[in-house]
Design a protein around this nucleic acid. Structure first.
Lengths: 195, 195
DNA sequence: ACCTTATCTGAACGTTCGTTCAGTTTAAAA
DNA sequence: TTTTAAACTGAACGAACGTTCAGATAAGGT
């Protein structure tokens, strides 16, 4: 049998390339990156990288790196399950937080939270909420709503008397929209950034 | 004076192109996208788009779209400040959550939270924490630490007696590492995804 | 109405692109 | 050691790339 190729090494090289150039590589660049003197030599490793989902090839023949390469965060286990050693990290895929959190970019908005009416739901002032418009809310969804002219964030609920909005703070009371209620979207994620 | 160009329309067209093709456009594709019959015609609008930070041009001449185009979330104001109408949304830039949260991709990890020891800091079981390795923690940083063989998430602190770790839950007590303390990283962000 | 000038067209250029092919090299299997 | 087949080289191909240029077009100012 002929030589074998080291795919893990190439994945790291692809990450390095993308970190520096911030774009997709060409065949010639892949050849140089992998240490080949011929562009043709990349076809072998490339097929495996495509199969493993690290690279896609468009109809035009051009290559694009997937979030497995371009993603910026490595998803590991739980805190209690232990923290992996640097040696174990080598082959762990990266994910893209945008694609993880955002389903429909055109209907998604970020809002900064002010006020403490949802604090018992772990949503603090200064947090950022990711809001998705378009779908009707279900019970216990956290929504952005305009009640009688004012925008707020509350739990959504419905009963025989109609729609109600609950805060997650005992200092505030349930709201029953009197005149109007318009829904700005459903809170799909909460993001808190430190320092 | 000759004709004027509509830059806002082109920004939307670029977003559409990226949403469909998921890659950077060529000059020929830009010409078709903008409705020109000549590639040369894109140079005018392109200069403005580059100036405004929507497109970058690499040394090779190739174009790359910036997160202002490729980002998947539009950053708006605060909840109380009001929710913008669809008409106002047209020209709002998008941001990339990865680039917003991740400073050094190679030193960044995501961990799923188990346990409720940080619940009073608004970090719930099931939340995802974004951990950055490499820098020493400051007081009141939330850190991932291995204390006497077990990994936990706690507030970091230091006094005359040495290092201590505080939970954000009155049911738990302050920990003073007896044998060993190794730090897995500093919690830079908390992400909670609903449904 | 005419003039002016940025915008746009259409064609051409050298370069680089992805692809292909014949032939060489190389390491594992026999 | 010999055999064998995958890995790799180096060259070539048409196509598409970004760029450039002379000239046509068309809208705004006068």
């Amino acid at each position: 049998m002929p030589r074998t190729i080291n795919i893990a090494e190439k994945i790291e090289q692809l990450r390095t390339f993308h970190a520096i150039e911030q774009r997709d590589p060409t065949f010639a660049e892949l050849a140089e990156l992998f240490g080949y003197r011929s562009k043709n030599a990349v076809y072998g490793p490339l097929q495996k990288l495509i199969q493993l989902g690290y690279i896609q090839q468009k109809r035009s023949g051009r290559l694009t790196l997937t979030p497995k390469i371009t993603g910026s965060s490595r998803l590991l286990g739980t805190v209690q399950a232990g923290f992996p050693s640097p040696a174990e990290e080598e082959l762990i895929d990266t994910i893209n937080l945008d694609q993880y959190l955002v389903r429909n970019p055109e209907a998604t908005y970020l809002l900064t939270v002010s006020g403490d009416s949802m604090i018992e739901a772990g949503i603090h002032p200064g947090d950022i909420v990711l809001v998705e418009k378009g779908n009707p809310p279900k019970k216990n969804d956290i929504i952005i709503a305009q009640v009688d002219g004012e925008w707020t964030m509350k739990y959504f609920g419905k009963d025989k008397q109609g729609v109600y909005l609950d805060p997650a703070n005992k200092a505030y009371q349930r709201i029953r929209p009197e005149r109007s209620l318009s829904i700005g979207g459903i809170v799909k994620a909460v993001i808190r950034k430190y320092s």
